[in-house]
Amino acid sequence: MSQNDQGQRERWDAVDHYVTDHLAPADEALSAALAATEAAGLPAISVAPNQGKLLQLLARVQGARTILEIGTLGGYSTIWLARALPEDGRLISLEYDPAHADVARANLAHAGLDGIAEVRTGAALDTLPALLAGGAGPFDFVFIDADKRNNPHYVEWALRLTRPGSVIVVDNVVRGGSVVDAGSTDPSVLGTRRMIEEMGKNPRLSATAVQTVGTKGYDGFALARVLD
């Protein structure tokens, strides 16, 4: 990384910290969730605090009563989302790794949210059909932040488990700019490109994507609304 790039990254970090301090300050449960995630040796890939607050605000603007999350990690984003729900709301988060799921469950319990948020373990492409078969949904809000190669499949399942008016958010869709590399062999890039292209063709979705910079580097997210 060049000196100029390093200075730019420090500026991004400083802006994120400034925004977070004033608009999305940490509390004990959120700080404890990040600390527990780090202590358990989970990857340091939780959403940034201001991104977590954005998810919460989007869910609240949506008036969500039911939320589906694909990719739990340590439950940090799950806490942000669950706090957007009313007392009788429901959140289901799907996590592949049992160890990650255990950390997330403990973090949700510590935050007092285990009554409305649950973590289900297993490959999402196995647990999503089980959700449908069990009559779960329709979900008002879906947040997808799991293995990127399967993003097209996750969006397909999100459409089966939502209703007209539901909102779908997909994280990490810019991939440091590599999403425009048509010659990439990276499965995460290939999966993300296919998802974006299929979103644009799907008559049931109105979607866009936004580039972001900050403590998580250069990336972005996709936002879609399910149409009638």
Rank of each mutant, 00 (worst) to 15 (best):
P98L: 07
N172V: 05
E198T: 10
L34R: 15
V226H: 07
T37E: 04
L55R: 07
E10R: 15
A40K: 00
A123E: 13
G112I: 02
G220D: 05
S206K: 13
A33V: 05
F139C: 11
D147Y: 12
E28F: 09
A24Y: 03
G134T: 07
T215K: 14
G112A: 03
I67K: 05
K216R: 15
L91E: 09
L30H: 05
R160G: 00
G41L: 12
A109F: 06
L85C: 05
Y76F: 15
Y218F: 15
T37S: 15
L131R: 10
P152E: 10
H22A: 14
A82N: 04
R9S: 13
N172P: 05
A14C: 04
P25G: 07
V173G: 03
F141C: 06
D88Q: 13
G75E: 05
F143D: 04
V179M: 03
D88R: 02
G135H: 04
A209K: 09
A32N: 10
D228M: 02
N50R: 14
G220L: 11
L190P: 08
V119N: 04
V103K: 06
L131H: 03
A106Y: 04
A158C: 12
N172L: 06
A109S: 13
S93M: 08
K201Y: 01
T162N: 01
D145F: 04
R83L: 06
R65D: 05
